[in-house]
């Protein structure tokens, strides 16, 4: 139940999407169309981060960059973080990002 993530301080919304980008479920203080848009964005962003990690591994000849575990975009007021096929919108000041990432990682294995 990814809904449990909403119990964490500062978590505004959480969504799950499929590997092909289809919206699976979403909860939180955002209307449904925005949750779907968030899932869509996160899917696209995941593929871009995968592409960037591939390039980082390729250019540096270092192991350990791929496959990427997730990504975080930190904004002044809001941030977005994603692990596997889950994405969370959080309040930058209120949320404990380490906890959110840890719980996202755990929830991704449900």
């Amino acid at each position: 139940m990814i809904k449990r993530l909403l119990l964490l301080d500062g978590v505004v919304a959480v969504c799950r999407f499929r590997d092909d980008g289809a919206f699976v479920e979403g909860y939180g203080q955002m209307p449904q169309p925005e949750l779907q848009a968030l899932a869509h964005f996160a899917h696209e962003y995941k593929r871009i981060v995968q592409g960037n990690a591939d390039q980082l591994a390729m250019f540096t000849n270092q192991r350990g960059w791929t496959p990427p575990g997730g990504w975080i975009v930190r904004g002044g007021r809001m941030s977005v973080c994603s692990v596997a096929n889950l994405v969370c919108v959080i309040d930058t000041q209120e949320a404990a990002i380490n906890t959110v990432i840890r719980d996202l990682t755990e929830a991704a294995t449900y």
Binding site: F41, E44, Y45, R47, I48, G51, N52, D54, Q55, M58
Partner: peptide, 13 residues
Amino acid sequence: AIMSRATSMSQHM
């Protein structure tokens, strides 16, 4: 191929 694929993904978004 890796670079082109990454750029195409980015343009798509």
